[in-house]
């Protein structure tokens, strides 16, 4: 990244190895998080009772994804100091020295503005404004404010990751009803058990970075109970959603099976001691974390299946 590298005679092998490639800039957008945003926003868009032109739908999802990526870049800019400390994040473009923090901020701000304007132009300004609010919520409310100040950071910050299906729905309809908020609630309630399970087996990471994770502030026993309580509430919500406009027999089947497995995992986590977990290298916590990924994917997949089958008289309860 050094300007000195312009002079070929001064270029060293080290400089070349440190130079950012296009992929490093792309990594600022947190592609893995983006894939969740794309999927849930797509489900929100397709579950809406309005037909959207395929190209407009494609653009809507693309700009929502870019908005999500932009907030990821701004998160990496602000959190560069703690990313450097945590094992999980120290390979990211800024702590690894490939991209400068200022570059990440510029890319994040530019893509934020671009995604909001383009989504507004492609669909409607309500959707554009909602995307702007989501970026603000993730970057300012979660990253800058809550993440380092409260152990409830994951709970409230999880809202930012839960907005994409609502934005997808609003992009299609231009209005709001109960159904997109049920999808929001599903992701919102899913986030705490998902992240707290991760915090249980990545313990030193958050401790070292001084992030007030529940495991650090309230102890690991309390975290295990929190996972169970949130999972019970999530299960009630997830199964209850079966009887709404976005539910149906397919969704109900998925919800019953997945929530039974998820509850079992949360119960096992709540019963385990630290010695149990240390003995098997957090096997139960790790498998609960993996299950949580499948959990969300299958729930949204079932909502999508119900929506896609509706035109053939198969989806939903009617």
């Amino acid at each position: 990244m050094s300007d000195a590298s312009f002079n070929a005679s001064t270029v060293t092998a080290q400089t070349r190895a440190d130079e950012a490639s296009f992929g490093d800039y792309f990594a600022l957008l947190k592609p893995r998080v983006m894939s969740l945003v794309v999927f849930t926003a797509l489900v929100g868009l397709l579950a809406a009772p309005v037909l959207v032109h395929p190209f407009v739908g494609f653009c809507a999802i693309l700009f929502i994804a870019i908005g999500g990526g932009a907030s990821g870049a701004l998160n990496m800019w602000w959190d560069a100091d703690i990313d450097k400390v945590m094992k999980r994040t120290k390979g990211r473009p800024i702590p690894s020295g490939k991209v400068e923090a200022g570059e990440a901020m510029a890319i994040g701000l530019a893509l934020s503005g671009l995604s909001v304007i383009m989504l507004g132009l492609a669909t409607n300004w309500f959707a554009g404004a909602f995307l702007g609010f989501t970026i603000f919520f993730y970057v300012v409310v979660y990253t800058m404010w809550l993440k380092r100040s409260t152990p409830q950071n994951i709970v409230i910050g999880g809202a930012a990751g839960a907005f994409p299906p609502v934005i997808g729905w609003v992009a299609a309809t231009g209005s709001m009803t109960l159904e997109p908020w049920l999808m929001f609630a599903l992701t919102f309630m899913w986030t705490p058990p998902h992240f707290w399970a991760l915090a249980l087996f990545m313990r030193s990471d958050y401790d070292d970075a001084g992030v007030p994770m529940l495991t650090v502030t309230h102890g690991r026993r309390a975290t295990r109970w929190h996972i169970l309580v949130y999972t019970v509430l999530l299960a009630l919500l997830a199964v209850g959603t079966s009887f709404s406009g976005i539910g149906g027999p397919i969704y109900l089947t998925v919800a019953v099976v997945m929530n039974a497995l998820f509850l079992r995992g949360a119960w096992q986590i709540s019963r385990r001691t630290e010695d149990d977990s240390e003995a098997d290298n957090f096997k139960v916590e790790r498998s609960f974390f993996k299950l949580s990924l499948l959990y969300l994917f299958l729930h949204f997949g079932a909502i999508l299946a119900e929506a896609l089958l509706k035109p053939y008289g198969l989806g939903g309860w009617s």
Binding site: A8, A20, S21, Y25, F55
Partner: peptide, 29 residues
């Protein structure tokens, strides 16, 4: 061509393709 161009070919190609894709999107919309 300067060594810099070879070294940054990947990055320049990425930016170029991104801009081309943006033009296609605007045109399509």
């Amino acid at each position: 061509s300067h060594e810099l161009h070879q070294r940054r070919f990947n990055r320049n190609l990425g930016v170029g393709l991104t801009l081309a894709a943006f033009i296609v999107i605007i045109f399509g919309l």
